[in-house]
Simulated scan of single mutants.
Amino acid sequence: MTGIARHQASDSDELAGALSGWSQDYTQLGRGRLHAELLHIQLVEASLIYEHSNLHLHENMTPPEGQVVFGIPLSMSTDSTFNGGTLARDTLLVLEGGQEMEICAPGEIGMLGMTIDRRLLAHLLGAEEQERLEQALDRRRLDISPLSAQRLRQDLCTSIGAFERAEFDPRSADDGLRAVMPGLDCVFQGLDEVLRAPARHSGVMPRSLEQRRRLVLAAVEIMQARLDLPLSMPELCQALNTSHRTLQYCFRQICQATPQQFFLSLRLAEARRRLKQDPVQSITTLALDLGFASSSHFSSLYKRLYGEQPSLTSRRA
């Protein structure tokens, strides 16, 4: 359905459900209160997106099937990553709908993006541009020139502003085309610069990096199945048939956190979820159910991550 949706989120679960049609999961790793906003302008066969958050988050996402996603940072902290590789200010992301991927930002990040239906792209692009697009989809992550990146940011911001000021109507197919065409032109200008230039480095993820990413995903899957049970790092390493040093290295590269920090964040997120679902439950019982040694220890860790006591979360729910 076409239209403009704005969301303000103070919780990772709220943020995960904000983008219609996407499968998203956020793990808060940074301490403090989350302040996130998302603007989603759904057009006819396309969409425009702006997302901003202020804390260290790990995002796992899958765009809708049949869509191609073009994204670029608007603002960001250093050391942000996409699928474990560097996400720089002038990094263009070109993503296929239905494919799972991750972004990890150790602090503030703002992203601009547009999605375009595959059928519309087939109508708009010539044979050479289609070939460029497939090359870009294979790479996913391309470092374009600062000038092309800045033009893309400006065009996306201009198009978003036109809908916010009601100069464009999201229900109009013509307005939708007018909104995405300048950005699409900038995308292909950037792709031409990268793909026609002599190869300096490939945006394709090295096999070793892909293996590290898959190891982290497998570890997270085990963690999520053991949120209410003790899970030591030796147990986790044994289940994954890897060494403690390797697991630590992979988590630091992909998530910029240790496995222990990530597992603790998952357990605290589950506690926050349960407090909102059942505000009258005993915090002591909840803490023990999730494997914490005591309610005071749990409350201390909870406040350190979320900036508030669990009792305050219950009262707000």
Rank of each mutant, 00 (worst) to 15 (best):
A127R: 15
K303R: 11
R151L: 11
Y249C: 12
M101C: 09
E65H: 11
S314L: 08
L39V: 07
Q281N: 09
E131C: 11
S159C: 10
G85N: 08
L121F: 07
I254R: 05
Q8I: 12
H52I: 11
S23L: 14
L87M: 12
S295G: 06
L264Q: 15
L92V: 06
Q150V: 04
A46R: 00
D90P: 03
F262N: 04
L133F: 06
Q261V: 12
S294P: 02
G203E: 05
R139F: 08
R252W: 07
D169A: 14
M1T: 14
G126E: 06
D11T: 08
L133W: 09
A271L: 09
H201A: 09
F251R: 06
F298S: 13
R212S: 08
P310F: 08
R140Q: 14
L191S: 02
T258C: 05
L87Q: 08
F251C: 06
M111N: 00
E59W: 01
Q224C: 13
E108D: 12
P64F: 00
A149L: 03
S295K: 13
G107H: 08
L195H: 10
L312Y: 09
D138S: 14
R273P: 00
R178W: 10
S47V: 01
T62H: 02
L290G: 10
L240C: 10
L43G: 04
T258F: 06
R315A: 12
T81C: 11
A257V: 07
L121S: 12
L209W: 04
A239W: 10
R267V: 10
L29H: 09
R6A: 08
S77W: 07
A225Y: 09
Q189I: 04
R140P: 01
R273G: 09
Q309R: 15
L120A: 10
E167S: 15
H201S: 13
L112Q: 05
Q238R: 14
A88I: 05
A166S: 15
E65N: 13
E129A: 13
A271G: 10
E37Q: 13
S172Q: 08
Q224N: 14
